[in-house]
Design a protein around this nucleic acid. Structure first.
Lengths: 334, 334
DNA sequence: CGCCCAAATGTTAACGTTGCCATTGTGCAA
DNA sequence: TTGCACAATGGCAACGTTAACATTTGGGCG
């Protein structure tokens, strides 16, 4: 076997190019105070030896890692892929990398995510909150570790960012009422979902703002089956001309449930979902739904950390509105 | 504002605990050659100062980062979330972290992914290949950087792992023929998809192994719409009692297309998909499909790198079979 | 011709950690 | 009592990089 190749350092390059280590370093950073011909000689040496700057040495010297940590309690979850796309895009823009960590939620605390991250080479961290951590109120970010939470709740010490669930419901209700519907029925989600409850509030309060008492909601569990049952239940309600479901799976289930009772969508009943998750899966329908920009949520989080870099930037709270996408499941009654 | 807190180093802890830096280090690593009471004193000092071992110093000293890099050309893609779950789980198991990088595919080469990674604090890398990189044949992994490719193709210098697409088709065809179907029709995907083409081969060759000439396939484009069209087209073919679609969206589209022509599923025609991606979206059907274990794929890749640790482990190629999940869209003709 | 300035390059030290080897202390056998 | 093994701890150096400062060189100008 050939000689075991130790990693190539500036020293090796310097020796080969016949310059000092500092000149090599300056060349790496393309400093203007190195003569072009010297630079070229150094670059040639780097190429010949296959020099790669050592991350550890550099970070040790600089005290910065140019890396943002992302802590997730659950990796699988609606929109996480888009959020990651956003993390990666924003990191790329700033010359940062992303370090991903799964935190097992026992206990489900910000503290456990934080201490997990503290051992990693990161300058700041993003925590994706799926539900309410036990220490949400009391948590303090590690000193020097800028922390951004992906949640709709506001935190006194950490910046937060998420989709605007309240506004989502407002948009849907306004949209339906703008098309002549007198009220909007709602298929909710389990009560433990933060974002789901916020959607429910938005629905309720927007109706009330129109002087309408919200009808009895039908509680679902995110699945199409529960939407199906809800659709069947609502099919017999003559006041029900418009249904807003907490996600697309329930919306689609609801449509099928309505159809199973002889109701046509949108002729008899209009249905709107949330998430734009059906995509190409349903062939004969284009569901009217709300599309969230999770990529933008991810970008915002990483921008906040990488963009601040040295300068400590203040705590901010950001809610990013979704966009209502018109399909063919809503009838205009006007 | 309070004094700006420099990071706490072993030196600070050593001073406070009245021991040497080395003893602190030994305490961190729980070496047996430190007296329990000394350890406790050191630990108390660490707690008081909030000491966190510095990653850069440690990595510099050790020459290892305990981190695996994951390079993706496209982050959004079927199964990526599950794969990441696998990456994270395996990394966790070995005490490793995951560093995620999006490589913009211009050019779409392994070399560009590799050089991107070389600047990052990683000991090895995983590349998720979506299509054929231009330099697949000639690529050489960076020295000292164990490289695993997520692809079904074999590579002479890099280990590879992916779902077994051929076996997937074999399972489906065997399953349908085992239930008395005389042949299996196929809805394919666009020709540029590696995995899709492999599914097609599996379908074709398994039929031939049964002495059956594969019928004309219907080319789809992954969308339910194309499945719908395919279903309508196949509805008039009297020899068609079983259809195998390259993904679930097309399978579901196909079912709706068949129904639109008065065919019932599964009474008249059986339909099988691939991917188990419909999940809870379709309320009144449980599609028979093949579920891939993408988490296991991700775990295998990271295990290969983190598990080898020091010892160079050889190049391996792994194909992980999927599992056929029975739903209610297949009729037993026997 | 000497002086000063600027450009180009070199030298040193430090970032935090830990492997190696040296030193000190303690108990036990010869 | 001496010698020796072993347990516990300390000192030192090095990992690769780069900021800060030091030095050299060459050129312009009085």
């Amino acid at each position: 076997m050939a000689a075991v190749k130790k990693s190539v350092s500036v020293k090796d390059v310097a020796r080969l190019a016949g310059v000092s280590e500092q000149t090599v370093s300056r060349t790496v950073h393309d400093s203007p105070s190195v003569r072009p011909e010297t630079k070229e000689r150094v670059r040639a040496a780097m190429r010949e030896l296959g020099y790669r700057p050592n991350f550890a040495g550099r970070s040790l010297r600089r005290g910065k890692f140019k890396t943002v940590g992302v802590a997730m309690f659950n990796i699988t979850g609606t929109g996480n892929l888009d959020r990651m796309e956003g993390f990666a895009a924003a990191a790329d823009k700033h010359g940062y990398a992303i370090t991903l960590t799964k935190v097992d939620g026992h206990p489900y605390t910000l503290e456990s995510a934080s201490s997990r991250m503290s051992a990693l080479p990161v300058d700041g961290m993003v925590v994706i909150m799926n539900r309410m951590p036990a220490d949400f109120g009391t948590f303090e970010p590690l000193p020097g570790m800028q922390t951004v939470l992906v949640t709709m709740l506001e935190h006194p010490l950490c910046s937060t960012v998420d989709n605007d669930q309240f506004d989502c419901s407002r948009q849907v209700v306004e949209y339906l009422m703008g098309r002549g519907h007198k009220t909007v029925h709602f298929i909710s989600c389990p009560e433990r979902s933060l974002s789901g409850m916020r959607r429910e509030e938005g629905w309720r309060e927007t109706l009330r703002a129109h002087g309408i008492e919200p009808p009895q909601l039908v509680r679902g569990d995110w699945t199409a089956q529960s939407g199906y049952a809800a659709g069947q239940a609502l099919a017999d309600d003559p006041t029900c001309t418009a249904i807003y479901a907490s996600n697309d799976a329930m919306a689609y289930g609801c449509i099928r449930g309505l159809e199973s009772r002889g109701k046509r969508v949108p002729q008899d009943v209009s249905v709107v979902g949330v998430d734009d998750s059906l995509g190409d899966i349903v062939p004969d329908r284009r569901l009217t739904t709300v599309r969230f920009d999770n990529k933008r949520v991810g970008m915002w989080a990483v921008d906040k950390i990488a963009g601040a870099d040295g300068g400590a930037s203040g705590v901010e709270h950001m809610l990013i509105p979704g966009v209502l996408v018109e399909g063919d499941t809503v009838r205009d009654l006007r």
